[in-house]
Design a protein around this nucleic acid. Structure first.
Lengths: 339, 339
DNA sequence: ATGAAAGCGCTAACAC
DNA sequence: GTGTTAGCGCTTTCAT
């Protein structure tokens, strides 16, 4: 900046004013300064600027690192979500500091904010770390989590209407003629628990008793899903539909059913969750519950800004919709009336 | 930091020294200071620190924004690559500033570095922006690109051995009995061009003339792939195998072939590229060329560090390997001898 | 409308 | 071993 000032024959104060578009600067001077800056490829030092104004526009986005499961980094939904966040931040000229850390480490979650690198944190997926997240929020770190609204949470959340999604999926299966619908998914995860609650809802709404023995708590890992499915098929021959709590799980399920010589949807219907683009390419094309990814980034940012402004842990729920395809029996038009 | 100093009854200089593990500090004092810092949840202000030491450990990772194609944000390979980079940076205690911008805008690509927010840039995918990338490098911005080594490039690259991959895939198809192998992919992209070169190589190595009329320049967009495939099948009935330049394209191809009543691999063999985890779940399971994602992040970082240290645009090529599955005819064991 | 000077939170000489 | 002080590059009073 000193260089620009010297070349323009003015003080750094004027350069600062000119470059930031402050009013009290003569237009011709401003143009001269801008020209010189451009020529030098000069950009204002963000660190120095932030230090002076005691403020920054960087947001820390944390993708939980799950050493146990291979769940995380092959899921296209996660990429779509991160992309949505990146776009929302870019649109509002925030910077995005990405980190992949173990969410149990409260200290590391807070570090970016406490070292003033970032003004707030977005965590993509709450997993089992409810209590740790509460601790982060208690420490005064502006925090918003993509996930489910949990009783007693002190952090902001943005997430899909998982319960509605679960209800839509299950209703679709039942109305397609299924009587014994299995649920595969790790219900110890809050989001999955809500999907399961919707599954129960749909049964009740039809005067049916949800068959709890058909709920299998398989984590996202492929091998586990296959094992649970095998045991399910062996023990419960009457089963005629499967609601998988993610598309990745559903894909594994369809593949395994095929190897077992069972046809989808003739022998068993299958519905997934997330509606990743790929499921339309499966054979059969997979019915799935779509989340509103495009809205997610903007909603997360809105919630975070509210928290920064002192709001008390707001919570936003985004709509889910059913996308009927070939893996379920009810025709797309018929399923329109579902709830 | 002043707070910590006051509570410890020492000067800020001592706190700074203690917290950074400098030698000349009495052990008991250091412990006292560390205790107080922890208690206050104090973290050193990174911005102020970087300003003072005139240096930082942040790397800008740019995911090209392609307004045209929907190519980008559903590709699991991209997420795996970003994850690999994030892990490599974390392991070496770098921060990752993620942005999703139009790579044609040279100025924005340079901004993070020129505003001293980051010390270098990693671009994930070179697309058609060879010239712009050269301009960035010429501006003195430390730059490394995930992509192909191009004649006349002045920026560092890290990428897969796409030519080898193309050769492996094509050889596998030919040795599985195919005689008219089609290539679907946008050969104007350097990486895809290399895959195509490998396709040509494999033909030559067997004394065959590569059937250039069977090369279709379809971009990653699904609709385009389907159209090209339809025209291909209509015009060239003799076609008996397809090498798709990405797994996503291959999935679309398999789906379209099925709707056209053609069987894979009996009527046509299909092989993809990237080996995303999902292709093993397809019906039939898709043969594919695997890239070394796990190595990618570390290699990119190594190259970037070399550039920062003044190296002249190094270039790293990572191995590719064929993963034979059900969509091709040659048994996995037989295919071991391929080259 | 422009400049001089103080200070954001930190580190690194230099003194003691 | 510890404190004092200058200054990183910027913004912002306060003068002029």
């Amino acid at each position: 900046m000193a260089d620009v000032a010297r070349l323009a024959g003015v003080s750094v104060a004027s350069v600062s004013r000119a470059l930031r578009g402050e009013p009290g600067v003569r237009e011709d001077l401003r143009h001269r300064i801008e020209g010189i800056a451009r020529q030098l490829h000069y950009e204002v030092d963000e660190g120095a600027r932030n230090l002076r104004i005691r403020h920054n526009r960087t947001i820390s986005v944390v993708v939980p690192h799950s050493p146990a499961a291979g769940e995380s980094l092959s899921d296209p939904f996660l990429l779509a979500l991160i992309g949505s966040i990146a776009d929302a931040l870019t649109a509002r000229s925030y910077d995005l500091l990405l980190s992949r850390i173990d969410t149990t480490q409260v200290g590391r979650l807070c570090r970016d904010v406490e070292s003033r690198r970032a003004m707030g944190v977005i965590v993509v997926g709450q997993g089992h770390h409810h209590e740790q997240l509460n601790m982060v929020a208690d420490r005064g770190v502006p925090l918003v989590v993509w996930g489910a609204h949990i009783e007693g949470r002190r952090y902001a959340t943005v997430g899909s209407d998982n319960r509605l999604g679960g209800r839509l999926a299950t209703a679709h299966l039942l109305d397609g003629g299924a009587r014994r619908v299995a649920f595969i998914g790790d219900t110890s995860l809050p989001e999955v628990a809500h999907r399961h609650a919707g599954y129960v809802d749909a049964h009740h709404a039809r005067g049916l008793l949800p068959p709890m023995e058909l709920t299998r708590p398989a984590p996202f890992v492929q091998a586990r899903v296959e094992r649970e499915l095998a045991s399910l098929l062996a023990m419960e021959p009457g089963i005629d539909a499967i609601f998988a709590s993610s598309d990745l799980t559903a894909m594994t399920v369809v593949h395994a059913l095929h190897r077992a010589g069972l046809r989808v949807p003739e022998d068993l219907q299958v519905v997934g969750f997330d509606d990743i683009p790929m499921v339309a390419q499966m054979r059969p094309a997979l019915s799935s519950v779509a989340q509103s990814v495009e809205q997610a980034g903007a909603a997360l940012l809105r919630a975070l800004e509210a928290v920064v402004d002192g709001a008390q842990a707001p919570s936003i729920v985004l709509p889910t919709t059913l996308q009927p395809r070939e893996s379920t029996r009810l025709a797309p038009c018929e399923s329109a009336r579902q709830t």
